[in-house]
Structures are given as structure tokens and as C-alpha cells.
Nucleic acid binder design. Structure first.
Lengths: 162, 162
DNA sequence: TCTCAGGTGATAATAGTTAGCAAATGGCAG
DNA sequence: CTGCCATTTGCTAACTATTATCACCTGAGA
């Protein structure tokens, strides 16, 4: 369902397969990674796949508790983190655990080193142009945007061999 | 100092004026906003302006303590938040306070409603093209990137009058 | 079925941030 | 200059999100 093909920004299609099949496929990939397939992991994955938005650990916890009333919030945290590690989920927002402040008010974006988490300013006029050319995306009023480019800086590349 | 003019991504010029002048200008704008100008606020603004990277509250705290040994970390948090409110600073990373997880692994970016903080997936091929066309930015190896587009959704627009 | 590495639940600990409140102070009226 | 008072500060406790610890449990291969 396209929102704005001209801009190249649109809602993606929902991934194929019904929920049951996707959870089955997930279970198989768990075993490939040498992970046990537990009812809790299935339930957490099912909740994540069923969610239209981007749930916090606590949201997943609430969803899963209907089926597993005794599950622990710690298990949900651990499992979501595990899913990210084996590439079955992505963590959306916080590369950093704490707020960073910036006194530079000129419009700019950020280069973030995935090793040392240092943040550098960059200007990116072409991004701004793409972003600024559109005031609406479907129902949504565009009020801004920001680009984070993940990099590995020289010193972090030297420290890791892979 | 351009890093990559072709891509339109480069390091921005440092804002004009020396540190003293910029802190003076800041003090004036504080009064315009009806805020007292306290030594603590000046010191925090100076530390923020002097910082090349994007300090956390604690980093600013450490810098300011040299001059104000008795300042409280809570004051630093409060002040940085105040600076953001009057537009003298920007908060870089976390629009959310907690991690969001996403089971959708196809390459995509996010629409974030600044009102309700809901997150929606969007594809943005033109952004990906810009980002993917460049493997290096100066010294930095590009390993990825993400775009967050800030929006106000319909229901949030209805709730706020301004 | 038996075994045990790995997973789970309960709880405590931690990091970052915010709230509450008494004391101190910036900035204006006189 | 002086005094007043709303704002701001520092201290502390509380709170939120997350991680660590550890005894018990269980998935899955022999």
C-alpha cells in the first residue's frame, strides 16, 4: 500500500506466511543456531510477529502473559536480546542507553560509531531535500526527521580483527 | 571540511563566534524566554558548546564540576532539558526511553509519531540508495544507517490545538 | 527414560532520569 | 541599594528500564 511512490517512501508489504508458519520457521532456525525451542520463546516470537507496531519488552510481556501467566519479565528481555543476536529481530531506537545533547542547532544528522558510540555531526542536504519535499505522508503530518549513519571509526576498526 | 560532496554528506562548519560571545548571546536569549541566568546555566551551556562530540548529562556534569564543584547532577539534567525546550540544544538519540523491538527484518526505516511515540515501518528506497552508494565517509567505514521521520498522526493532531 | 547444558523465574542490583522539598538566589520594585 | 518573591538549586528518594545472580527446571539427544 503505497503512501508516496514519488518520494520512494511507502508502507512495506507484510511478510509472507501466516503466523503459525512463521513461528514454525523460526523454531527451525532456532535449532540451526543451537538454541532450544521453548514455549516461552515461541510465545515471545509469536507476539513480536503479530504486533503491528514496535513493542517494548513490557508490551511483549503483557501479550505473552495471557498464555504464560508465570513468565518473567527478565525472560522477555533476555529472549528479545537473543532474537536480535541471531538475527530474528531488530532493536529499533536506542543505540545509546542515555540521552546525548547537542549545542549545534544547524540542521544536521549524525554519524554514530557502532564500536565506541561516539557521535559526529554531518550535513546531508540531499537527505534534507528528500525529507523536506513532502509535508504529508498519507495521514501523517511530517514534522521532521533524522538520519543516523552507522560507521566504524578508524580506531575501532583497528581493535577488532573480524 | 567536505568528506563527500558527491553524496552531499559532509562535516558542517563550526558555528560562528567565540565561546564567550556565544554564551553571552545565550544569556540574552534566556532572559527573552523569561529564564534567570544563573552561573550554573552559563557553565552548562559553555560546556555543551565547547564539546566537540555529543555529551551525556554525566559528561557535562564532569566538565562543569571543575568550575562548580557543588553542582548537582539533577541540575544538569534539568538544565539540559530546559535548553531543549527553549531551543538552545537538541537531544540526540532517544525519542523513546526504552528499546523497541521489530520482527520485520526487511530493510526499512521508521515513522515515529512525536505525540504518541508509536512507530510505523516505512520503506525508503531512495534513502537506501543514497546511503548504500557510499562504503566510506572519510576515515569511517559505513556499516548501515537508519532514517527516522517524525510525524504527527491524525489522532494526535486532533488532541492538540496548536 | 536418563542426563545435563541451557533456559527459566524470582529477586537483587544497576544506570539513567525524574520528583519532592527546603534553602539559596536572580532580578525587579521601590 | 535594599528587600521581596518567584525561580532555581542541591540533596535525597523514587522511579523506570535493564541486567546479573542463582537455584530450580526442562528440551532434546544418547
Amino acid at each position: 500500500m503505497a503512501v508516496d511512490p514519488k518520494l520512494g517512501i511507502y508502507r512495506p508489504a507484510v511478510p509472507a506466511g501466516d503466523l503459525g508458519a512463521r513461528v514454525e520457521a523460526f523454531s527451525a532456525r532456532c535449532r540451526e543456531h543451537g538454541l532450544s525451542v521453548t514455549p516461552q520463546r515461541r510465545a515471545i516470537m509469536r507476539a513480536l510477529l503479530a504486533s503491528e507496531d514496535h513493542p517494548r519488552a513490557e508490551d511483549v510481556y503483557d501479550a505473552v502473559r495471557a498464555e504464560h501467566p508465570t513468565i518473567s519479565l527478565a525472560t522477555v528481555h533476555r529472549t528479545l536480546e537473543t532474537l536480535c543476536q541471531i538475527g530474528e529481530a531488530r532493536k529499533v531506537t536506542p543505540l545509546h542507553h542515555s540521552a546525548r545533547y547537542d549545542g549545534n542547532l544547524s540542521p544536521h544528522h549524525h554519524l554514530v560509531c557502532v564500536g565506541c558510540l561516539r557521535v559526529l555531526d554531518v550535513e546531508a542536504p540531499q537527505f534534507d531535500e528528500l525529507l523536506g519535499s513532502q509535508k504529508w505522508l498519507g495521514d501523517h503530518e511530517v514534522v521532521g526527521g533524522s538520519v543516523e549513519i552507522y560507521v566504524r571509526c578508524r580506531s575501532c576498526r583497528q581493535q577488532t580483527s573480524d
